[in-house]
Design a protein around this nucleic acid. Sequence first.
DNA 1: CTCCTACGCCTTTTT
DNA 2: GGCGTAGGAG
Length: 748
Amino acid sequence: MSYLEELNDIQRAAVTNTDGPILVIAGPGSGKTRVLTYRIAHLIKTGVPPSQILALTFTNKSAREMKARIASVVGDAANRVWAGTFHSIFAKILRFEAEKIGYPASFTIYDTQDSKSLIVNIVKEMGLDPKVYVANGIRSRISSAKSNLISPPAYAQNPSLLEQDRASKRPYIFQIYERYASRCKRSGAMDFDDLLYQMFLLLHKNPENVLEKYRNRFKYLLVDEFQDTNYLQYSIIRKLTDYTGSPKNICVVGDDAQSIYAFRGATIQNILDFKKHYPKLKTFKLEQNYRSTESIVLAANSVITHNKKQIDKTIRSEKGDGERIKILKTVSDAEEGKRVADSILELKTRNHLRNEDIAILYRTNAQSRIFEEYLRRHNIAYKVFGGLSFYQRKEIKDIIAYLRLTINQNEEESLRRVINYPKRGIGNTTVNKIVKIADDNFQTLWETIKEIHKHPLPAKTQQKVQSFVAMIEGFTKRLASNDAYQLATHIADKSGILNLMKSDTSLEGLNRYENLREMLDGIKEFVESDEEEAYEVTDDKTLTSYLQNIALLTDLDTDTENTDRVSLMTIHSAKGLEFPSVFVVGLEEQLFPSFMSMQSMDGIDEERRLFYVAITRAEKHLTLSYAKSRYHFGNIRFNEPSRFIDEIDPVAVDRDAMEPRAVVRGAGLGSGTSRFKRKPSLTTTLDPNFTPAKPEEIIAGIQVAHLRFGKGKVINVEGGAANKVATIFFEEAGQKRIMLKFAKLKLL
DNA sequence: CTCCTACGCCTTTTT
DNA sequence: GGCGTAGGAG
């Protein structure tokens, strides 16, 4: 078994101890994924049927990667392993078992937006003040209730929760929760938490002995990123493995130092409880780091010692000192953007790095903009992960709403979304009446509009509603005969969406149309793809399974274009990834650590673990940066450097690099009026009464100044007479091609 | 009912 | 600085 030779002693022990409970504490870069995948491969090699193995991860990406690596050892058998995220595996099981717990098999999955808009509707209906009952706050309250297995009735009787709600002047949250749950059920919809919560209830209520069915099916369980599981997830794991007579073949892998999801209920208490609940537990610690240089590991270790509570371990590297960590101190967020982009150019030439070897990591999604701007100026290809994902865009959600409604008419968020989109004369007044009627009759909206003639509404309105109903019914009829692509194309056309988009010739409209086309192409690809690949254990090509897939897909998963790009993402999304060169930016008090976390010690500790995760993504080069001033909601803010910088062992830091360089013109505070404009203007550096040069004066090699782009050097000039085009490299703005006829250039 | 504009809120982090 | 929504006019 040659693959065992690729492991160190501890890794090998963690792989070959196949039976009984195992806890692997795995530091960053310690070959955690390798252990997990080889363990699964080893199980299969020693005769365990792959379909009896369940591997739960946090991202689709790591599930996919895991499968690919298992396949490289055992071949096709890897495809029969149940590997996926908690959410996707449970969605798949629930799809199969839904009717046993009162949901349709075609249940809809609500994303965060859907949940929020449902809550907004409920708050309105209950006549509560939406400024007090903010949707986001309510949603996280409901989410954490579910994550702790607290049902609506249990919430209503829980003194401490009720007291908290009273204290925050929102005493009716328990009623909203109750209503939210019943509306989801009535809609045949599950939110993200339901995929876990209903899975637990399924096993707990155990209709038709499903519990035994799944206990028997999954003989070997593996859980990645165990430190990020919440009570609910852990409870499901226990349901499946912790019972009398269980072989307890469960292997969990995690690192308490990398726990960064406490805000959504994750608790390292699960690691501590695991030792109690599974007494015959064997523990393995992976402390050898194979990823980073010693400087980087030293920095990480020194930072994390500032956290009191942690499982004792020391990470070692044998990669040599490597470069020390650079610190970029800048005067403004704009200068930070520019300096990082400059450094990337420098890295690429000096160290022969490709774009894909480089990542910029930040605390909040909003920080990406300024880096995008300067990377574009420097002609560096990049990709922003996270933020608004493709499937969250309005035009995409609109078409998705039609698709959902076609499958599940009772689903109300989609119905409300499209009943008057495109405009068909069913306005707010009508919708509100319909909602009222539905509520009075204990019906769904769909049931109400299907019988709209029974209700007192203007004849014209009734007609419009009836033709909407007929349209949707027409779509539904096609489900049997059309594949997902045919149906989606039909819907885009007949709903009027396609025409609406074609008629919008604005730039944004064109963009939206492109996105719609891309969406349709994506469906086509899904229909035609030969199973597996990106779409995990899906074997059917129905619209239902397509919708399930995209509901659980994140931006991180859509890297189909394998082009060479710098990655921009939050530190949270970067977990589990590694890059030769990493920039961790925005290291300022209030931002990182975030002001939201600064009330409590635990909050700061979690931010510090986040910083630890950020540092340990780097293999060779690590640069930290901070800005003295930064725009926040359009206002300028001044922050101190992050406390985390001082917590790094000075030995690991390159002190020379700490000294500030010359201030960048136009990008900093010193540029007069431009400070109040978002776009740095370079106009001020040029002569105010300047006269443009004649086209024939511009020749290769000379220095010029442009009204907007600043100083630059002409690289070449092509085209004849009236249509001369010059390629000019500007110091600030990068390379541009400019029509000389229009150019406002000055000779220098 | 629809279109347009002004204002107000926003930003932790994610499946 | 940007997006979604409320509120007014047509």
